[in-house]
């Protein structure tokens, strides 16, 4: 209907355009470019990389410890590959949710506060497409953050400590190659575990034009969830908290691997992504963009 009414010239212009909207891979790449061209992103990844480095250096300088401290800490002097595990245990409660909260909370609200949201929308990016791309970018960041901690841990561990076959939680020993494979699995596990929080951050981000508020709210929620997860009074709630399976990545360090927590974690996060994705869609697609 519209084409028949446009001027011949405009019609010619339109023929240059694609017949169908692209799925958005180009825009996704552009979004990744935006994310990883930010100094803030690199600062956060740098801070995450500093966690295993600080742990390793501290252990190296003090020559072990007295057995207290986070899990795996006392294994580091025997095997440098445990630096990555210890760093993950340390990072999961606060540092990883913090950085993910910043990225996810910034996703829509950041564009709104930079006044770029309205230009994206009239480009037109399509509101659903924008949400999907923002969530995908946040997921990529989750992976990047987790891999950063693991990789920095492995590298500094190799540099400062002896490396050899790794003793699993079950007392069995696996080769270095298999332990690296399991490290990768753990990175995937932790990434999946952070997807629910990313979806929550994305939803909160659609509620406001103030990115700092959305980031703070997301991070606070991740802390609240973990506090609730500690209280025995809220035990009935525990399995429904998105942070419930966060530290169960250790199930990948058992022999044989306990896959049930991987599946349960994935299902739980999927539920969170579905619920908060739907909320984000509802909120964002009905929102008046006045920023």
């Amino acid at each position: 209907m519209s084409l028949s009414e446009t001027t011949p010239r405009a019609q010619g212009d339109l023929e240059q355009r694609r017949a169908r909207r692209s799925v958005g891979f180009g825009f996704f790449l552009s979004e990744l470019g935006l994310l990883f061209r930010r100094r803030r992103t690199w600062a956060m990844l740098g801070a995450l990389a500093a966690v295993p480095i600080l742990i390793a250096v501290a252990i190296r300088l003090t020559d072990g410890g007295d057995g207290r401290g986070p899990a795996f800490l006392d294994r580091i002097t025997q095997n440098g590959l445990f630096v990555a595990m210890t760093a993950l245990v340390v990072s999961i409660p606060l540092f990883l949710p913090l950085t993910v909260g910043v990225v996810a909370g910034d996703s829509i609200a950041g564009e709104a506060s930079a006044s770029t949201l309205r230009y994206l929308l009239v480009a037109p990016v399509g509101r659903i497409r924008l949400l999907l791309v923002k969530f995908a970018a946040a997921a990529v960041f989750c992976l990047a953050a987790t891999v950063t901690v693991s990789l920095a841990g492995i590298l500094i561990g190799v540099a400062l400590f002896p490396v050899g076959p790794v003793t699993l939680l079950s007392g069995d020993t696996v080769s270095v190659a298999e332990s690296l494979g399991r490290s990768l699995l753990i990175a995937v596990y932790v990434t999946v575990g952070l997807l629910g929080l990313s979806a929550i951050g994305l939803f909160i981000s659609t509620l406001t034009d103030a990115p700092v508020g959305a980031m703070a709210a997301t991070v606070v929620l991740s802390i609240v969830a973990q506090v609730l997860g500690q209280l025995s009074q809220t035990e009935w709630l525990h399995p429904w908290l998105f942070s419930y399976h966060w530290l169960d990545f250790a199930d990948l360090l058992r022999q044989p691997i306990e896959w049930s927590s991987f599946g349960e974690n994935a299902l739980l996060q999927l539920a969170y992504v579905a619920v908060f994705g739907a909320l984000a869609y509802a909120r964002f697609s009905t929102k008046d963009i006045l920023s």
């Binding site: 539920a271 579905a274 619920v275 994705g277 739907a278 869609y281 509802a282 009905t286």
Partner: peptide
């Protein structure tokens, strides 16, 4: 109508 999924999805879950 945009809020339908926001209600439906938690219900389905």
């Amino acid at each position: 109508q945009r809020w339908v999924p926001a209600v439906a999805v938690p219900a389905v879950v």
